Simulated assay, not measured.
Amino acid sequence: MNPRIAFVAAPLLTFAYGVIRILDGLDGSRGPGLAWTTGHLAFIAAMGLFVYIFSQMRRMAGGDALSTVIAVVATAGALALTTQFTIDVVAGLLSADNLSMSLLSREIRDTPGITFAAYDVGPYLFYVGQFALVVRLAVMRRIKGWTPLLVLCDLIMPNIDKDLIPLGAILLLVSFASISHRAPSTDSRSVPSTAKPTPTLV
């Protein structure tokens, strides 16, 4: 995959989730149904792209130990959010109404370790890791200095009001579009080397 596509698609999918979420709640409740499932699947797809993006950011930072640790933390957070949203999708598909969906979700969450990993702690690793990676790239002057500010605004928006997710996604799109211009256009393993062979001194 071209990294630049991922940097643009992830915020767009997050934006789609935020908009669908708002539309789903216009009748006073959210889920189950097509909107609930579609919105959550869009977010899960975004998480998959974020994992790829984190690996690209790590490469942009030089792939050193610190950037590797941060990327692992961010990836763990993305997996936690994926688990959380997968639970929501499954509960929605197996339920006939909002009440039964909520009860089923609560039952799944009661499984030992699920609440801690997928709700209480895990998701915050995604936000902290993502911001840390962007800050590291900015400190290393690999990306624009204003980029971390937009990413931080995006991360704060849902904590103010989840209806602000689309606005945060737009800010993230602006910042990620800027980062994408600094990212390699293709995986380095697929790019043929153009370097001339070094002559052997006899």
Rank of each mutant, 00 (worst) to 15 (best):
P3K: 04
R4Y: 05
V8C: 07
V8F: 03
P11D: 11
L13M: 08
T14K: 08
F15Y: 05
V19I: 11
V19A: 13
R21S: 12
I22Q: 09
I22T: 09
I22R: 05
L23F: 14
D24L: 04
L26K: 09
G28T: 07
G28W: 12
S29T: 11
S29V: 13
G31Y: 01
P32R: 06
G33D: 14
G33N: 06
G33R: 06
A35L: 14
W36A: 06
W36R: 04
W36S: 10
W36Q: 07
T37H: 09
T38F: 10
T38M: 12
T38D: 08
F43G: 01
I44R: 00
I44T: 06
V51M: 07
Y52E: 09
Y52K: 12
Q56P: 04
M57K: 01
R59C: 13
M60P: 01
M60H: 01
G62F: 04
G63I: 05
G63R: 02
L66E: 15
S67M: 01
V69L: 15
I70H: 05
I70K: 02
V73G: 07
V73C: 07
A74M: 00
A76P: 00
G77Y: 01
A78I: 01
L79A: 07
L81A: 09
L81H: 05
T83C: 13
T86P: 02
V89G: 04
V90Q: 01
A91Q: 02
A91G: 08
G92L: 04
L93A: 09
L93M: 14
L93C: 06
L94M: 13
L94R: 07
L94P: 02
A96H: 03
A96M: 11
L99P: 00
M101L: 08
S102I: 06
S105D: 04
S105E: 08
R109Q: 15
D110Q: 10
T111A: 11
T111G: 00
G113C: 05
A117T: 05
A117E: 08
A118S: 11
Y119F: 12
Y119T: 11
G122V: 13
P123T: 07
Y124T: 03
V128T: 10
G129D: 07
Q130C: 10
F131G: 09
L137P: 00
A138C: 06
V139D: 11
V139A: 12
R142G: 00
W146G: 11
W146R: 01
P148V: 09
V151K: 13
L155A: 10
I156H: 12
N159H: 15
N159C: 00
I160V: 15
D161I: 11
D161Q: 05
D163A: 15
I165K: 07
P166D: 12
L167G: 13
G168V: 07
A169D: 08
L171N: 06
V174Q: 03
S175D: 03
A177Q: 03
S178D: 13
S178T: 03
I179F: 00
I179E: 05
S180F: 03
H181T: 04
H181S: 10
R182T: 12
A183F: 02
P184L: 07
T186Q: 14
T186F: 10
S190W: 14
S190T: 13
S190C: 04
P192V: 14
S193G: 11
T194S: 14
K196V: 05
K196S: 11
T198P: 03
T198A: 15
T198K: 04
P199G: 10
T200N: 10
T200F: 13
V202P: 11
